[in-house]
Design a protein around this nucleic acid. Structure first.
Ligand SMILES: [Mn+2]
Ligand SMILES: [Mn+2]
Ligand SMILES: [Zn+2]
Ligand SMILES: [Zn+2]
Lengths: 134, 134
DNA sequence: TTGCAAATTAGCAATTAGTGCAAATAACCT
DNA sequence: AGGTTATTTGCACTAATTGCTAATTTGCAA
């Protein structure tokens, strides 16, 4: 995801307006590697801007995702997680504390034995126990 | 997942009762490689046993999962998918028709660069277009 | 076989995550 | 500064799943 300043420009160029709510979320998401949920962002945003609505958080997350600034990932934990890192990468999820870490591997194994399936994308999820929990 | 007959024994051994509803689901799941959802199983079950309740389908799926006969997988499609193949394997999901295929790869890439994270399990999801849809 | 305790079913309420809608408000172009 | 258009917000609503419980069924035991 680009910086708050760059997003400000990008939003205006797209005919979207730049509100204090959106600027706050730009800041909360920029360089955020925690893979937050809408709810956790809502809590963080509410601390700085009491009264911001959860609906607005969802709306802005959808906008950013549609613009390709954010990716939404479902780890089967109930809620979707949002990731400002839109480069191709994988994830390690701690079964104990729920922490999600970015993982870079050279290449996912080639798909064999499924004749005719053309792979467009692959995502590896590692599960186990993180260093802090061990 | 074991055969309906073996499951019948296993359920009784576990102090669980074997009802017609459960036997039907044993049959519908045995050798089922479609990765069905609770809802799709409910539809299939209803065809053979009108009046069976969705609640019972969920309950039996939970029981089978708890017993390790089934695994529940979330592909981010809204509903959980159930897989009677509990061997370690991966999946290819068609973005066009939603079909889910089993995939066997020699080994997922070792996790490097995350010091101290001990991997217990890894799951690769390939997304793309299946042969039938191409 | 029959009886009975314990488990199951099924219906409905409740929950969680997220979306649809519309009135009030705010951004920003001129 | 004014007006058009987008945004915010609250609330109702959906989808998937779980909680609760009365009525029913299973399966051991007499
Ligand atoms: Mn990530
Ligand atoms: Mn499978
Ligand atoms: Zn941890
Ligand atoms: Zn397909």
């Amino acid at each position: 995801m680009r910086s708050p300043d760059q997003l400000t420009v990008a939003f205006r160029n797209a005919g979207l307006k730049v509100t204090p709510q959106r600027q706050l979320l730009f800041r909360l998401l920029h360089n955020n590697s925690a893979h937050p949920t809408a709810e956790s962002l809502f809590v963080a945003a509410s601390a700085e801007m009491p009264g911001i609505s959860l609906r607005t958080v969802y709306q802005t997350l959808t906008d950013l995702t549609d613009m390709g600034e954010l990716q939404s990932i479902d780890f089967g934990t109930g809620a979707s997680h949002f990731d400002p890192n839109v480069a191709h990468h994988h994830h390690a999820v701690c079964d104990s504390c729920g922490a999600i870490h970015d993982v870079y591997v050279e290449e996912a194994p080639r798909l064999t034995g499924l004749d005719g399936f053309s792979v467009e994308h692959s995502h590896i999820v590692y599960r186990g126990t993180c260093a802090a929990c061990a």
